[in-house]
Design a protein around this nucleic acid. Structure first.
Lengths: 206, 206, 206, 206
DNA sequence: AATGAATGAGCATTCATTCAT
DNA sequence: TATGAATGAATGCTCATTCAT
């Protein structure tokens, strides 16, 4: 990763954050925007305004930092998902709200994509730990969908498959669907509606 | 990338292949299975049984090699897609056959995923070149879908969006949809049918 | 030094040992089995179940810890030597007993070997301090030998040289004198007798 | 190892030496005077006036460099030993000459001492390779001694033990046998004679 | 008396790239 | 067309040491 720190003054931290959380949060940003190998421990340290040795003081290896970062991140995301999907609204509305939320934040949930380039670096148990967390994330959505199936709200299909379908549709990169040169990407709400509309047809009865 | 060459003797090439094509083909394999930064020029050279300097003789930089590899690869894939989608069969059958083909071969077409970890390495023009090729790949599918829309075979939506939806559904990792401990992943045909079924509902009229 | 702590539960210390002595003793074990640079202050701390900072509380630098450890160790060894060599037995018997004692315990007294890898790390005065202690150790043996010379028990040669000869013979690694594949190293008593026999001829009259 | 290159202009190399041999030779000097961990690959490179990467071009790891250096060195030493011990002179003279030679050159043959601090770093096979070479070195001396035993020139004892005894006596550090402050160490010839005299008594009949 | 946090300097190793042949 | 040799810059990781508490 080459040095091009994001422009602008970083938001001043009112409350002093525990160093390990600072590292975790910074690392999350970096790992989301760059691949595992692209992010160096130095990058993380510099971005945190601490030394590399300090990063190692909290995380024994880069793989450990990566693993813990990913897990913490997905835990957080899972929380968001639950909050939204648990609301007392029609399922379709909830799915739409979740879609808008995730298209708004750049929080790519394309875990498979994110985990490219870790095959030979992460230990088996580390990979498993991340995968387990990921599965739990999908499970939350699957559970909601399964409930709706039981209620007869939507047709009965494999809820896990449906959850993956939902997520994979959200990864569609809309920013580049535009014609050559046109930088006016359609409003996120519209994209989200298209996706949900498409998805809903896939799961609705008849 | 750590050295664990695939076991067994590589197939001896009766027909001597032009060195640059050999490199391109070898690089394709490596870049598909490992991320950009994970693959070293040495890896490519060793896998080709030539020296690193020879690789540089044909491709000035790693970024160039990567770009040309990706483009050649997507050209090939586009060919496959066209071949299948042009056949004289109902659209749904063609989409199914294409799905099976791509789930069978490990040829991940998850370009976005593949291109992770190149943000700061590839030049703007290189990224654009790959993106352009990628767009053309999607365009082939979009064209077929658009034709079907005009024929009234399916409902009218943004064909590019539909093409992306089709592709993104194909990236669903079915191998891990299984329950804890179960190693019996469903047959590819079944997965493909589920996906196409789901997709078809998304695009079919009513 | 890589982590492979000796197996089994370390003996619980009923009597609480002053921390500085604990450190000194632990460090002795480590420095005997590994070279100076191989042993980290962390290793010492972990082995003592205290923090690195605590080690530094008692010993200002690693070089100081090393120096004091070595001196304490050699003082102890000198004590052992004296105890044995002072006994009321024929000189040859005493030398034999000492030999057996030192071949039994793995306590390598190969100070020169031990001090390899400290040339540029220890200060002049530190090196000298250790050397002085070492000389005193040799001196004990030399004194006993000199007495025997005066008594006419053995021939007159430089007693210091004789002491060094005695010690150097004890460093012969008998475990590897065996033939290929044979793992039956000769009993220590036999080795010790051979050495003493050899040494005795070197110093005996006629 | 801290930077204090040996003073004086290094001898100009008339004949340009192959780089790998230059490295091997330089490394030998460094590893003889400092412990394994004390010598960094940078040290080797700098001493050779090449870059660290070049050292790695020829030797894949530090352990490999060390192993090959040691083996090459002991091969050379074995050659010297053979040359001297094969001469047509009384055994005692040959042993004396060899002693003088090795006390003159700083070539410490204290392999055990030299190998301290490699336990956890060298692979099993690397350690074995060095040990094997070492054994061959001792074997040369043992063979000569065994011949003399068969000729009835000296008494019959384990020739390998005798060889080790001979070598271990040569490691006696005579430079420090001197009294406090006196820097007049005895002439090497005298030391050598004392050693050989002592050794000869150990192996001679009667 | 003891420690948690932090760091600067160093180290083994890798890698994209160059160049003379 | 192809390569052996060489390198500068990184990168993951370690370690002796400091300091406020």
């Amino acid at each position: 990763m080459k040095k091009n720190r994001s422009p602008g003054r970083p938001p001043s931290h009112k409350v002093t954050q525990p160093t390990n959380e600072l590292i975790l949060q910074t690392a999350a940003q970096l790992f989301l925007n760059h691949s595992y190998s692209e992010v160096s421990m130095d990058d993380v340290a510099i971005e945190c305004n601490i030394t590399k040795a300090t990063v190692y003081y909290y995380f024994n290896t880069k793989a450990v930092l990566y693993t813990e970062t990913m897990i913490k991140m997905m835990e957080r995301i899972r929380g968001h998902i639950m909050t939204i999907l648990v609301e007392d609204k029609p399922l379709k509305s909830r799915l739409l709200k979740l879609a808008i939320t995730y298209l708004t934040e750049t929080i790519s949930i394309d875990i498979d994509g994110i985990m490219r380039g870790t095959k030979n670096t992460l230990s088996e148990s580390q990979t498993q730990a991340i995968r387990k967390e990921e599965d739990q994330m999908y499970q939350v959505i699957a559970n909601v969908l399964e409930d709706a199936m039981k209620m007869g709200e939507v047709r009965k299909i494999d809820p896990i498959f449906a959850a993956h379908a939902y997520m994979s549709l959200l990864t569609i990169d809309t920013d580049r669907n535009t014609k050559e040169g046109t930088f006016i990407s359609p409003p996120i709400e519209e994209t989200a509606e298209n996706i949900i509309d498409f998805f809903w047809r896939g799961i609705s009865k008849e």
